[in-house]
Design a binder for these strands. Sequence first.
DNA 1: CCAATCAGTATCGAATCGAAACTATATTTA
DNA 2: TAAATATAGTTTCGATTCGATACTGATTGG
Lengths: 199, 199
Amino acid sequence: MDKHPLVLLELVERLGNLMRAEARRAGVDEQLSPVHVEALVYLSTANRYSNTPQALGEYLGLTKGTISQSLLLLDRRGLLERYQDDIDRRVVRLRLSTAGEQFLYDAQPQSAWLQATRDISPNRIRNAVSALRETLTTFQADNDGQPFGTCVGCRHFERLSARAYRCGLMGDRLSGPETRKLCWLFEMKGGSSNDEELE
Amino acid sequence: MDKHPLVLLELVERLGNLMRAEARRAGVDEQLSPVHVEALVYLSTANRYSNTPQALGEYLGLTKGTISQSLLLLDRRGLLERYQDDIDRRVVRLRLSTAGEQFLYDAQPQSAWLQATRDISPNRIRNAVSALRETLTTFQADNDGQPFGTCVGCRHFERLSARAYRCGLMGDRLSGPETRKLCWLFEMKGGSSNDEELE
DNA sequence: CCAATCAGTATCGAATCGAAACTATATTTA
DNA sequence: TAAATATAGTTTCGATTCGATACTGATTGG
């Protein structure tokens, strides 16, 4: 019986706890709790299909009631904007305000992590990413959650030409930068094993 | 500028959130919150130097007041025992009760993770562990936290003979199994880079 | 066009958490 | 040795967070 998976779990949990503490630190000036900071970070990387309370709740593993509360607070503080979707008027769209972007820029909730990974070669990072990504995908497949990935590697991603892309599920054309944002409609592309190459 | 470190961060945070939700699920029968479950898991793997409220607080990133509360609850529920240290009577030692061990056995808070990693080769896991371990160490060195590792790779670890070990810092002899438990006195052994071989 | 479904909000109560004051030991200093 | 300081843990308090439940308004389906 191999115990390494549990060691990996322990590291993930521990680093997760540390980054949570880091988020707490980052939010202390603005009186924000870790979840609020994480929500802002999420919104800064979510694509057009994923900037809703529902997707955020799925991402953070919280119920919609709780999410609604947090968004109310962030809205009151002027850190984000909520507006109605044009097509389906039940859904609320979320967008960071300039104050929200400024906050992320100032508080740098991820800088400690960037520092901590500075000495690790890109290659080792890619390998770690690959292993964790596969873990996440399997995990989500077992329990029925959304995987949250970017276009690269997504089943619905289509390249129209050198610099033109499209989401086959939603039918929209996508800009280059948008293909690198986080999407909760992500589905892993065919094949079973995805050992090599990411990028 | 390489964005892979941030991708890695995102995966760690997301898996951490999922495991937190998993801990919530595992504790629902016994009315335990995620922290309580995490505390029990920690105690099941902490060695003799690390089974104290202080170490636990350091591990979970919570203040001692908060920890004290949680331990009170777990004690009342009969899931752990608290007893005074013989030598320093200020310190409290913690030990899982049989009910506590039974709980972990029944609730299996880690089984979803083991399932999710089932298809990942031991080698890829080892590489991921190595990268994350180094991240953790650097992180802890930057901010002044305890690294929490096992004897293998610890500066104070001494092998007396084939099957006899010793902690050079505390001066105790250690049993084989104990060298594989978690210790908050862990300090990374010399050298700077530790790319290969863990095992 | 009525029922069912869905996205999000509002309300409430239980809990978690950090801050600060406190107790009891241990250690250092004078 | 006595007094000052430091340390491990507890207690108390209040703010915040979170899930559960009931609710509103929009959409979909038969």
